[in-house]
Amino acid sequence: MNDTQTPTIGLFITCMVDLMRPSVGFAALRLLDRAGAKVVVPEKQTCCGQPAFNSGDVKNAQIIAKQVIEAFEGFDHVVAPSGSCTGMISKHYPDLFKEEPEWQARAEKLSARTFELTAYLADHLKLDKSLATFDHTVTYHDSCASRRELGVVDQPRKLLSAVDGLVLKELADTETCCGFGGLFSVKFPDVSQAITKTKTDLVIDTKADVLVGADLGCLVNQAGQLKKSGSKVRIFHIAEVLAGMATGPGIEGEGQ
């Protein structure tokens, strides 16, 4: 542990950000850097293990969880730009090791110091002034993990409201899932897309020009459906908006 006042943060980058949208990771780094934190991205990380865990493959979920626990053991805090991965580490890792007390203790220690990015920025770093300007009407998507597993509801809204020029328009039925569910969307694509369509129709109804969320999975999922619906809504991760990095193509526009 470090002996100064500044905590050392291990950034759990998440496999989605690593693969799909590195700019979210750099935005998270910029936000944490500017708030005066000391941030490192450990190289030994791959994924939090949810694909295995959610498929019932406990063995592989345990092995991957141990890898994450080891990789992040030296940090005062662990931060992830995703409610879903944060939920996996903080709510589910300890349950994975009911028969391995030593690992369970290590998992619990990690759980207690792991935070979702917006909750960390708002609650720990007390970020309350704007770091950016964003002249758009924005609607915010709550991920189920952020909202229900972690209870992170007010923090992202508080942070967005502080952004200069940003007008926040609430989405109707915000408690309802967007239909992604990780591998659920692969195993049951028709059902998943039908749920997503209902969600993205509500996004369109807000007449917001930008959709923002804190979980890349939900956003990538909705991007496909919004495009299919012919919507012009642009999509960014909240870190990109807060860091003033939502300037290039949104999640909907990559590769086109």
Binding site: L19, P22, S23, V220, G224
Partner: peptide
């Protein structure tokens, strides 16, 4: 008709390193 958003380019880790 995939309508899949595509990755930005290199991975985060490659760029970070």
């Amino acid at each position: 008709p995939f309508n899949l958003p595509a990755p930005q380019g290199s991975t985060f880790m490659d760029r970070y390193k």
